[in-house]
């Protein structure tokens, strides 16, 4: 072995990592090689110098800062615990006690109660008066809220004005026929919008929607900003000729401007009272002025 070979062993020699034979061999070489002797002495002194470096401690406040970080981490973990982990943990905990009869009884009772309650809600939410031939969902009536005081019904006891009283302001005459029914869409994607051009002031208008058959169906009433639209979803009957079918419920102005106020079913003959309405634009296809308020009674 030459000097470079012994040089590679110097570190192990100083650390006491060499075998006895190799150590003796290196020591013998060092005795006869002043260059390697000098090198290993330098290495030893440099190691001692590195080891003599003072230990550096963290600055004051380190523990406080680290504590804050750890508290944040703990809080993050608490909030980040997944729903599934909590549920599985709860079930695991339940499983540990599941051999106890009271726990089993409580669990079984709560399970039965939960299923019963869910089933009850399901039954309540299911439509009852829907026609068998119409698989569509029940209609929703959406009235604008809040109702302005001047538009409120004059008589709270009898909120629906007589048709004859409002006859001058009727937007739609109840003149419906079987042939008109065919021009009206039956798709839920269609809508009817009330033409209200020529309206003066706040004169009340009335729209009467009359079905041809005493058959259950629905109508959805939505408000698009200052205007109103009628959406004859599931419409199997016809409306009067004063109604314009140019509207499209699939393209409402904005969804957030729609103000649903209730859901019910539309039976037999219904009336929709609108304020203001106009009888002048029945069936027109010209520019439309949206209605501001429409009240529906049934």
């Amino acid at each position: 072995m030459n000097c470079s070979g012994y040089e590679r062993k110097m570190s192990d020699y100083l650390d006491g990592q060499l075998s006895k034979a190799t150590e003796d061999e290196l020591r013998f070489h060092l005795n006869g090689c002043p260059r390697c002797r000098l090198k290993i002495d330098d290495m030893e002194s440099s190691i001692q110098a590195v080891k003599s470096l003072p230990a550096v401690s963290p600055q004051p406040g380190f523990d406080h800062r680290l504590g804050n970080l750890l508290n944040l981490e703990i809080a993050r973990e608490l909030y980040a615990a997944s729903w599934w982990r909590r549920v599985s943990g709860a079930f695991a905990e339940l499983g540990e006690h599941s051999r106890q009869r009271p726990v089993q009884l409580v669990f079984a009772t709560s399970l039965i109660l939960t299923i019963t309650v869910i089933g009850g809600f399901w039954e309540l939410s299911a439509p009852t008066g829907r026609s068998e031939s119409s698989p569509s969902p029940p209609m929703a009536f959406s009235l604008p809220t809040p109702v302005e005081p001047e538009l409120a019904p004059p008589d709270p006891i009898s909120p629906f004005p007589l048709e004859r009283e409002l006859a001058p302001y009727m937007a739609v005459k109840p003149a419906l026929s079987q042939e008109q029914a065919s021009i009206l869409p039956t798709s839920s994607a269609s809508s009817l919008s009330l033409n209200a051009s020529g309206i003066t002031g706040n004169r009340p208008g009335i729209m009467t929607v009359r079905t041809m058959e005493p058959k259950t169906h629905g109508i959805r009433f939505v408000s698009a900003g200052t205007g109103m639209r009628l959406d004859p979803s599931l419409f199997s009957e016809s409306f009067g000729r004063g109604l314009d079918t140019s509207g499209n419920i699939d393209q409402p102005t904005t969804e957030e401007r729609l103000q649903p106020v209730g859901t019910t079913e539309f039976r037999a003959t219904q009336r929709a009272y609108g304020l203001p309405g106009s009888p002048d634009t029945q069936g027109s296809s010209g520019p439309t002025t949206p209605l501001r308020r429409v009240r529906i009674s049934f």
């Binding site: 590679r8 570190s11 090198k39 290495m43």
Partner: peptide
């Protein structure tokens, strides 16, 4: 590791010299 320690020490030793 042993090899790197040896070489590192040799370099340190050179720089300190």
């Amino acid at each position: 590791v042993k090899s790197r320690v040896n070489r590192g020490r040799l370099r340190l030793q050179e720089m300190l010299r």
